[in-house]
Design a protein around this nucleic acid. Structure first.
Length: 282
DNA sequence: ATTTGTCCCTGCGGGC
DNA sequence: TGCCCGCAGGGACAAA
């Protein structure tokens, strides 16, 4: 499942290949994947050059050059669960392809998505249809790798909301999903259902440090490949080999040997060690 | 007001 | 062997 490290890896591998190329044509294979709609998407991006490829939260962002004196455009790719973005080698095809961007130099970018939850969105830069007008984008909280520790402490708040629900809430902090939430909470020794209000400042700092460490190491390992995730070259990541919590329910804790437990928090399966992550005093 | 549940979609693994 | 069921999960949306 692409979270921040996976999208960051795709952005880097894709940027190295696609930067500077012009979008000649958009091949629509699944019309419901494109926003505002297939015709609007094509009109917004065709004829523009890809100036850079980046990331915001779990969104892959392609910045496109101005055309006809306008302010430029951008594409946001939301991969959701099973979305993939590939640079297609000549003659190569992919399964479950929803759209193909035909670029200059004969290059093709494929957007494939088995479960079809993902989407590609095109926006003009500036004006009322700017990406800032997209409610989801506007609601995104700060990036965990660049925000300050005191802001993270403050954003957890003093309420009864469970800490894992806050980590998964993209308006609190952006880019964390179920894998990295579980991994960070394990490393910080905090049970997922702990109310934020009863986490003292030093524990908040430990959690923030754990989040940054886990995300940084995952990026260095090119992300986690459970099943579907691959980078723009089709290569798998390696951070799944470093999981200490995610998917380890019923197995021995790597720190203390206790059997790892599973609970549901915010509708998500959450794995934790009952000894290393003691029960909150609710 | 917060928070929980349902839906979207498809493949896979467990159970019988 | 084969079928059925539940699970995986980000986010929109509805409901309690």
């Amino acid at each position: 499942m692409p979270e921040l490290p996976e999208v960051e890896t795709i952005a880097r591998t894709l940027g190295a290949e696609a930067t500077g190329r012009e979008i000649l044509r958009v091949e629509v294979r699944d019309p419901v994947a494109l926003f505002p709609d297939p015709a609007g998407f094509q009109a917004l991006v065709t004829g523009r050059r890809i100036e850079s490829v980046g990331r915001r939260a779990k969104l892959l962002l392609l910045d496109l050059s101005p055309l006809g004196g306008d302010g430029g455009a951008r594409i946001a790719v939301h991969l959701r669960m099973t979305g993939r973005v590939f640079v297609l080698a000549p003659g190569m095809e992919t399964d479950r392809t929803r759209a193909v961007l035909h670029l200059s130099g004969g290059q093709r970018l494929a957007f494939a998505d088995l479960r079809r939850f993902g989407s590609m969105h095109a926006f003009p830069v500036g004006g009322s249809a700017d990406i800032a007008s997209w409610p989801f984008y506007a609601s995104l909280g700060p990036e965990p790798l660049t925000m300050a520790a005191d802001e993270f402490r403050a954003r957890l708040g003093q309420g009864r909301a469970r800490v894992k629900a806050l980590l998964l809430d993209q308006s609190v902090v952006a880019g964390i999903g179920n894998i990295y939430a579980d991994e960070a909470l394990f490393r910080a020794g905090i049970r997922p259902d702990t109310s934020a209000g009863q986490i003292p400042p030093d524990k908040r700092d430990a959690l923030f440090t754990a989040i940054q460490a886990v995300l940084t190491q995952a990026i260095a390992e090119n992300g986690s490949s459970i099943r579907d995730y691959r980078d723009a070259h089709g290569h798998a990541g390696a951070f799944q080999n470093h999981f200490r919590a995610y998917g380890r329910g019923g197995q021995a804790c790597l720190a203390c040997g206790e059997t790892m437990c599973v609970m549901r928090v915010a509708g998500r399966t959450s794995t934790y060690c009952p000894r290393c992550q003691p029960a909150p005093k609710n």
